[in-house]
């Protein structure tokens, strides 16, 4: 069973449909789940209240090897902090989310990804395939080893996919990226 964590805002029915999981904000469900997805719509600090009671169960689950996927804000929450607002991220990876500068912000629309390492989550994704992005902040991991793919926006390259062992994060919305996005979620489901 896949637990899709509900942080209060945003509808998770697309994610639910794609992976056949349950939408929950309960510690028990997350404990029982085989896999965890942390989606995210909204502002960084706006979800803190919902995230706080779930921190330890998420971290414990990851440490025990459960596959974990962060989507959009969910990816940013995997890091330590964000320029967007107050509150602490989950700190799974070192680094922070920062705002785009000198390019059109938000980065909204369909963009392609450039794979930079072999990746389980990107298996079967063709070169030049498009994914749907909608965000103003991007992550800056301290450890470059976790970067699986990058995306270019007006000449600026940012990290769009991270991957380390059982932990994955994507800046785009696979649940909103048509067929290409479904493949990502299926890859996660098949882990």
């Amino acid at each position: 069973m896949i637990a899709i964590i509900d942080l209060g805002i945003g509808n998770l029915s697309n994610v639910k449909k794609a992976v056949n999981g349950i939408i929950t904000d309960r510690v028990k469900d997350i404990e029982k789940a085989d896999k965890i997805i942390l989606p995210g719509v909204g502002a960084f600090s706006a979800v803190m209240e919902k995230l706080n009671p779930l921190r330890s169960v998420i971290i414990d689950s990851i440490n025990r090897g459960k596959p974990f996927l962060g989507i959009c804000l969910g990816l940013q929450l995997m890091f330590e902090s964000s320029e967007e607002g107050k509150g602490k991220g989950l700190g799974i990876f070192k680094g922070e989310a920062v705002k785009f500068k000198n390019v059109r912000v938000p980065h909204i629309g369909w963009n392609s990804i450039i794979k930079v390492k072999e990746s389980k989550i990107l298996k079967g994704v063709k070169r030049g395939e498009y994914f749907y992005f909608v965000h103003s902040y991007f992550v800056k991991p301290e450890d470059r080893e976790i970067v699986a793919a990058e995306t270019e926006h007006q000449g600026f390259r940012f990290v769009s996919v991270v991957e380390k062992n059982n932990v994955f994060g994507v800046q785009f919305h696979p649940e909103k990226s048509g067929e290409a996005g479904k493949r990502i979620l299926e890859n996660f489901k098949a882990l």
Binding site: V41, A46, L73, E84, P106, I108, H135, S136
Partner: peptide, 9 residues
């Protein structure tokens, strides 16, 4: 509204 949704939405 943007404080709740995030500007991007």
């Amino acid at each position: 509204a943007s404080n709740v949704l995030g500007s991007a939405n």
